[in-house]
């Protein structure tokens, strides 16, 4: 082999070995596990069966799946409703403030989400800041029961995931040519018409990216429902975790994961469609 080819061969081999073993193989294995049978001794074994998928989609699992989807969808919608105007405000901020506003948005993005989930617990506890503040202001007389409710779970998710919605939206809206808005207004469009006709269509790819970045973690960040929802709010993430590490029914957990991957794929379809086709540059 030529000296110049040796490096290419080695680096390709290393890359492929790693991706083959630690990415491709695990994904294939999860698919295989989902159609195996649970076994006391070796965890999983033949015969092949689709029983796990059947069990996951019916019985006790189905309502939890639906409930997870509902919570995730509500969280995503809230993130969008709050995040969209906020992203737009940042794009319109003056050159002096914009970097600061972005930086302030980035910092929580990088803070461990575990710690942020924990911080929300501190806020919502019976003796948490919100209750103390409300009592101090005389609005309530005894602490509200905030922790371990759906409200708490959604606040935690919203708190954790809001930056993931704002950042792609900002990246998208920042690219919007401001003269387009002025042109629309110049042509006599009302604000609502400008928004609907110019801004919204332009920001569809940003919305889709944001939705993907929020929706999936909202279903799978299992420690958020665990910290904030207690035993009451079980989401699909908790269920998969439970199935794997407590009950030890790997096929069922794997089947749920496969379904989760399919949901991911479903969400990605509009994302791919919204991406502009790369045009091949001629040399």
């Amino acid at each position: 082999m030529r000296a110049s080819q040796r490096f290419k061969f080695i680096s390709l081999s290393i890359t492929w070995a790693w991706f083959g073993i630690f990415v491709l193989a695990p994904i294939v294995l999860i698919g295989i596990t989902s159609i195996l049978t649970q076994n006391e001794i070796s965890i999983v074994s033949t015969p092949l069966t689709i029983q796990s998928f059947y069990d996951t989609l019916t019985g006790g699992y189905a309502p939890i799946f639906l409930y997870s989807l509902l919570i995730a969808a509500t969280t995503t919608l809230l993130c969008l409703l709050i995040g969209y105007p906020f992203a737009f405000i940042i794009t319109r901020a003056s050159n002096r403030f914009r970097p600061l506003m972005l930086m302030l948005l980035m910092i929580p993005f990088w803070v461990s989400s575990l710690i942020r989930a924990y911080a929300m617990v501190i806020m919502l506890k019976a003796q948490g800041l919100i209750n103390i503040a409300l009592i101090y202001l005389g609005i309530i007389y005894k602490p509200l029961h905030l922790l371990y409710t759906d409200f708490a779970v959604m606040s935690g998710l919203l708190y954790n995931l809001l930056p993931f919605m704002v950042l792609p939206l900002y990246a998208n809206l920042a690219k919007l040519d401001h003269t387009l808005i002025e042109a629309a207004q110049d042509l006599g469009a009302t604000r609502w018409q400008t928004f609907k006709g110019v801004i919204l269509p332009h920001s569809i790819p940003g919305i889709i990216s944001g939705v993907i970045l929020v929706f999936l973690p909202a279903m799978t960040l299992f420690y958020i429902p665990e910290f904030l929802g207690g035993a009451k709010t079980l989401l699909i993430g908790n269920l998969i975790q439970h199935e794997f590490l407590v009950i030890g029914n790997w096929p069922k957990g794997a089947a749920a994961s496969v379904i989760l991957m399919l949901i991911t794929l479903l969400l990605l379809i509009p994302y791919w469609k919204s991406q502009p086709k790369p045009t091949r540059a001629k040399s």
Binding site: T15, Q241, S257, L260, T264
Partner: peptide
């Protein structure tokens, strides 16, 4: 390879964790 990189970006952590757990088991 491109697809696998992309998969790694979008796959939920939970699923990746489980997939690796299964791999390490086998």
């Amino acid at each position: 390879l491109h697809g696998l990189v992309f998969t790694l970006v979008v796959i939920p952590d939970l699923v990746m964790g489980i997939a690796l757990l299964i791999l390490f088991h086998f």
